[in-house]
Amino acid sequence: MQPKVAVLSGFGINCETETVAAFEMVGAVAEKIHVNKLVKGHDNLSNYQILAIPGGFSFGDHLGSGRLMGNRLRFGLRSQVRDFVSAGKPVIGICNGFQVLVKMGLLPGDKNLNMKQTASLTLNDIGHYVNRWVTLEFDPNSPCIWTKGIKRISAPVRHGEGKFVTDNKDLMDFWEKSGQLTVRYVDPKSEYPSISTETLPYPISPNQSWRNIAGVCDHSGLIFGLMPHPEAYHSTWLSSTWTRENIAHGRGEPIKIFRNAVDYITSN
């Protein structure tokens, strides 16, 4: 069975094309769906096995990135989203999509699906948008189904608001222990494993995110969000240094993230 992926679009989402491409490269059937098609009932999330909220500038990032799109989903699609998540189907939010998931309270989330915001993504300490490549390391103990078996990848960040923070430090410790702080920025020159909670300097950490957090998952490991763009490196010739490397060309390493979700659906 080929899993069907709903890739949201509209209102300034702008990475839907490559997100569709990344899922299709690993054998899924991905469809670009305008948010209003779901809100107005022309389509329903229950027709899909995976939900992706791509990156972009929904509503121009005004009033805080992901905020207005988060509200559209929170107020317009509440029950569809709850049903989707309760049914144990995987959700990914990338960059702006991650911001949406955090602001609508699905990430890091809670067991009861309260959709109450507990963390946020705020302006990078440098104060502006930046596009550069980072090295990411994955917590091997994370329950995240999207990142199984992945140790390190590189990928670009392209954001102005990627600093993960919370106003409740106990929660942060709790997420750390439960493996929900899935992905961290690390120094590419360091040896694996090297995840540290000490904030790394710019540009290793592009935003001075707390504990170098680049992405988190919910308690179940099904909902996953991250600031860097794995879909932007779906092919080897899209990396930042490929002309210096002697490589066999093909799929880029972060494509494993999408494959994991497709494997999860096909094997469950």
Partner: peptide, 17 residues
Amino acid sequence: RSYDHEVIAQTVVKPFC
């Protein structure tokens, strides 16, 4: 660097190398 030069995932040779 504060321009997005990689959205749409197609940029093979980027502004910096």
